[in-house]
Nucleic acid binder design. Structure first.
Lengths: 228, 228
DNA sequence: AATATTAGTGTAGCATAGACACTAATGCAA
DNA sequence: TTGCATTAGTGTCTATGCTACACTAATATT
């Protein structure tokens, strides 16, 4: 049994890695710190977990404070608790990843006073605390999940073209994909509903699609858990 | 900014899901609680993170206290922090999964005073706190990881037969595998070193093998991250 | 009407996964 | 010693999925 004297109470925070696709690149929302430590450095948005508040609830609260959006995809990433990761004392942080649909991502994120902006993940400033490590891990996780889940759809508006969907995959994975192979794979999944509408953007108009959560659930029931 | 009065300090614990293969089944080490709450119920071993101690360090310390083993595979699983998950107050727990090689798993685990024993995961008593949820999630993760990583080898002694390896996979996945397909897949990976020794156990003697971390690293370097 | 731009479509080769049954080497008991 | 029980070890065929690869279609602009 640990001695009561040694058993230190600890402050617990949540940090958020908020991703969106902007200008066909994977971008992350960062805030510029106004106070020490790391004053002036960019950091992941986050904050303390309140008394009686669940971890995910705290993450959702911070997310809404930062971006104004609700009902987004949110997933716990990892918990970082090295002593010394925060010079102010013992702070354990539970990191979450949020995915925001392109059309719901605030243009230049309107945070309360503090400067906040989107940065391309592969062209970003050095971050405060151990946030570089957190962000790197988040990107790795997102890349992996993209290949065997349907999280990719969370980065798109409800209606989208197949080209837009492919651009999401290319932006996250960081490499070009073959158009025909990509479309065949998607079609084989059978989780997209084609719509009557088309959208025209410079050339031949493209058909719009919707993600069909209903069909996806049916696949899951059959044990086809991760169709990607 | 959260109000300072609302920002509650919190106790942080680590809980351990310690797996081993025993009698060809996936088993987990549980301890019987001697004190309230949940007195008499079985629970995952765990304890408070000490001041100045890292999360993983705390998990390793608890693991050694509980089993006496060192240098085991240890991986962070998930962090559970629902308010109300512990009737004594706000406790956030970081759950870890440990894999112990069959030959190093204590026979009937010798914990300090408290009763401790191995239970088959699919034939276990109801657990204290939210530990059933934690254990279920750990099993799910282990099953997934088994298929695309080499964690399976962590559940075996350094030298083992292919049949023993297959039994590990069958015990974790909970289904029988085809002997020829299994052996072909393993051979294709090229990460096993055949030894001269054989081990005889009732019938024809079986060749022993060693996991070759060196060859595995070479594969990783080539980008073949998860050969399974 | 010509041009630029984006959407949309099929096939062939290769690798991987699953189904499937018999022979080989040893220990033990009659 | 021989036969029997027990565990080890081996190859092929089929189906499925992945990769590479090039042209036609529909619109807007000049």
């Amino acid at each position: 049994m640990p001695d009561r004297a040694q058993r230190a109470d600890t402050r617990v925070t949540v940090d958020l890695v908020i991703f969106a696709i902007r200008e066909a690149r994977l971008q992350v929302l960062l805030i510029r710190r106004a106070v020490a430590p790391f004053e002036g450095r960019w950091a992941l948005p986050g904050g303390f977990v309140l008394a009686g508040e669940g971890l995910e609830a705290a993450a959702l609260r911070e997310l809404e404070e930062e971006t104004g959006v609700r009902q987004v995809y949110l997933e716990q990433l990892y918990t970082f608790g090295d002593p010394g990761r925060d010079p102010r004392g013992r702070v354990v942080t539970v990191a979450y990843v949020a995915l925001i649909a392109a059309d719901r991502a605030p243009l230049e994120a309107g945070s309360d006073a503090a400067a906040a902006r989107w940065w391309p993940v592969d062209d970003r400033p050095p971050l405060a605390f151990d946030h570089d490590k957190i962000l790197d891990y988040a990107v790795e996780r997102l890349r992996n999940k993209l290949e065997y889940t349907t999280v990719g759809f969370q980065l798109l508006p409800r209606q989208f073209t197949l080209t837009a969907l492919q651009q999401v995959y290319e932006a996250v994975l960081g490499r070009r994909l073959d158009k025909r192979n990509f479309r065949r794979k998607i079609a084989l999944l059978g989780i997209l509903t084609p719509l009557r509408e088309r959208r025209t953007e410079g050339g031949r108009p493209a058909r719009l699609y919707e993600f069909s959560a209903r069909r996806f659930e049916k696949l899951k029931d059959k044990g086809i858990l991760f169709p990607f």
